[in-house]
């Protein structure tokens, strides 16, 4: 999909073991498969069905999404680090597309 855009907000550095919040947003219509268009045809389902966040290879969160999640899924959670490194965020679309973005973080 052309206009799918991920956005992530997290601090640029954190102390070891200190919890901080990561906020993620991805623009995606999340078609539930229940809507009908102007002609009465059902708009097929197309959603982000999975979101994962890993840090230096360790999983932070793994979420399976269903059509009941709102369009432009907003996902917020808490993470903590013990070393500097990189967070990788991955969104999986029903149609097989995979959207990913990474953010580096320093140890404070």
């Amino acid at each position: 999909m052309a206009d799918v855009k991920p956005r992530v907000k997290l601090p640029s550095s954190a102390s070891a073991g200190e919890a901080f919040t990561i906020k993620t947003l991805i623009s995606h219509p999340m078609e539930s498969g229940l809507r009908k268009d102007g002609d009465g045809n059902t708009i097929p389902r197309q959603i982000i069905n999975r979101f994962t966040c890993d840090f230096n290879g360790t999983n932070v969160i793994d979420m399976a999404l269903d059509p009941a999640v709102s369009a432009n899924p907003y996902i917020e959670f808490d993470a903590q680090i013990d070393a500097a490194g990189e967070f990788t965020f991955t969104w999986y679309d029903d149609d097989g597309s995979v959207y990913t973005t990474s953010n580096a973080i320093d140890l404070a």
């Binding site: 200190e18 360790t58 999983n59 932070v60 999640v69 959670f77």
Partner: peptide
Amino acid sequence: MATGNPSPPVCNVSFGAGAASQRLSTRIRL
């Protein structure tokens, strides 16, 4: 689960070792 939705499942979230808490915020359709 959204028990009154035409399709009740909302999400399943697993927390790994990197999570600082078992908390998730999101927005859903009801």
